[in-house]
Design a protein around this nucleic acid. Structure first.
Lengths: 144, 144
DNA sequence: ATTATAGAGGATAGTTTTATCCTTTATTGT
DNA sequence: ACAATAAAGGATAAAACTATCCTCTATAAT
């Protein structure tokens, strides 16, 4: 469904969000340990997310990644997916036809629209705040 | 969503199904022309589908690919996807966590289950027969 | 100022996916 | 039998994705 880049990105951001909720900054080694991902690769992913203001970073001792309180409310999973995988998953034709649209549909166009829309709504309505609420932290895991 | 392999495979099979409905066999050059795909690559894809009995093939003059009448009814899109992309798209965790399941879910597990299930049902209930019915042929296209 | 820490960024390597080419095998028609 | 046709299959190439390493820059503490 998503690229590895996007999977690591989502897991990393969810983890950072949870730590930020309790006012903790986290370094890349802590993050990659927590989500079970290759450290250098995850660092690249976080670089992109930092550029796009999904997460913030501070260099030097006691530095690390974090997400500002007010951003937890406004950042949804769709924002992360769009940065890392683009909007293909929402908009692209299931059969890979570039010119497929409502006016000129592929045989599966109207069937895929519904599926993709479910995904879109889910990603757009799931915020980092929701994923960092206490009751969710207990039961869920982020690591292989 | 799907790999190129799977996209070409789906388009090819839909095209073959439509031709088979009117008792025509089609060769690989006709198929790749009709669906706008690289010929040699599409041939490989069809090789896999032939091995798995999704389509049948006959070598030599007047040979080509076709799907037996009775198979149009029973073959669903899910069968093609499973051969070419495996069942990952139905079963794999959205965050890429191997051990994610109902008992030990990732933070998005229950949200993804619904999405994936919609997709699964759609693919399992869409048969080649449906896609080769006359009324559908007029409006739909398969080529970029 | 110096040293240690930690993210940013460039370069490169490995793996998988996508794509092409060429030969072999099976079938048909003459 | 022979030539032509068309799929099967092996080998290889190109591109994209995943992953690692090393250096550079910014910050903090002493």
């Amino acid at each position: 469904m998503f690229s590895k880049t996007c999977e690591y990105g989502l897991r990393a951001v969810i983890f950072i969000a949870q730590e930020s909720k309790i006012d903790k900054k986290v370094g890349i080694s802590t993050i990659s340990e927590a989500i079970g991902s290759p450290q250098a690769f995850t660092a690249k992913v976080l670089q992109q997310l930092t550029k796009h203001k999904i997460v913030q970073s501070i260099k030097g001792p006691n530095g690390g990644f974090f997400i500002a309180e007010q951003n937890l409310k406004t950042i949804a999973l769709s924002n992360i997916v769009e940065v890392l995988d683009g909007d293909n998953i929402y908009t692209a034709c299931g059969l890979g036809l570039n010119q497929c649209n409502d006016k000129k549909p592929c045989p599966l166009h109207f069937k895929f629209i519904e599926i993709r829309n479910n995904l879109k709504v889910m990603l757009e309505t799931t915020t980092l705040l929701e994923l960092s609420l206490d009751e969710n932290l207990v039961n869920y895991f982020l690591k292989n």
